[in-house]
């Protein structure tokens, strides 16, 4: 069992280590409380799958009424879709997406922005984001513990390890700026 902050830190570091742009890794980490109160391990399986896919910038077709997001990595397309809705470009349609991960990403954004999104699932993998509601929004409270499958935790840690620098004896001695014993 982990604290929510541990999950949040793991998502942020794993995102960075996987190559997700830092600001989007932050968006993912913001969702930790919402991942914790949902189907945690199902969502983390989707997260890990996304982290193994390319992080090409999201695309969108703005030629018709509303916006249709291009197929792509949900860790990029959903934040971009939510941005477009916030900027008044809605409704925005995403198709071929994982419902649980999409819902968690939406919930995380709602939590940060303090307002609720008006959206509808029109199929198992297709969602329409209509716009942001104006009334006050109270996010669900976060749990104190979150149970994470060791397989997913290890996968997140493996991505995170891509950001760590192997140490040399020189860096061990000098990098932190202190001596190694303090018997004074």
């Amino acid at each position: 069992m982990f604290s929510v902050n541990e999950l949040q830190g793991a998502l942020l570091k794993a995102g960075r280590g996987a190559g997700l742009p830092l600001g989007l890794a932050e968006d993912l980490a913001f969702c930790a409380p919402d991942i914790a109160i949902a189907d945690t391990n199902g969502i983390l399986a989707e997260v890990v799958a996304c982290m193994n896919c390319p992080f090409d910038p999201a695309t969108a077709d703005l030629s018709g009424q509303g916006v249709v997001m291009g197929q792509g990595n949900l860790l990029l397309t959903m934040p971009s879709a939510l941005d477009l809705v916030a900027a008044g470009n809605g409704p925005v349609i995403l198709d071929g997406v994982s419902k649980d991960l999409a819902n968690a990403l939406i919930a995380g954004r709602e939590r940060i922005d303090g307002k609720a999104l008006w959206f509808d699932w029109i199929g198992p993998t297709k969602v329409i984001l209509h716009g942001w509601k104006s009334e006050a929004f109270a996010p669900p409270s976060q749990p104190e513990r979150v149970s994470v499958d060791p397989i997913h935790w290890s996968a997140l840690q493996a991505f995170a390890a891509n950001t760590y620098v192997p140490e040399s004896e020189e860096s061990r001695l000098a990098g932190a700026g202190a001596g190694l014993t303090d018997n004074d």
Partner: peptide, 18 residues
């Protein structure tokens, strides 16, 4: 245009833009 459009083209700036 809006930040939303800029960030879709430049996701690498999302962290510092915020």
């Amino acid at each position: 245009g809006s930040v939303a459009g800029f960030l879709m083209r430049h996701p690498e700036h999302r962290f510092v833009l915020r």
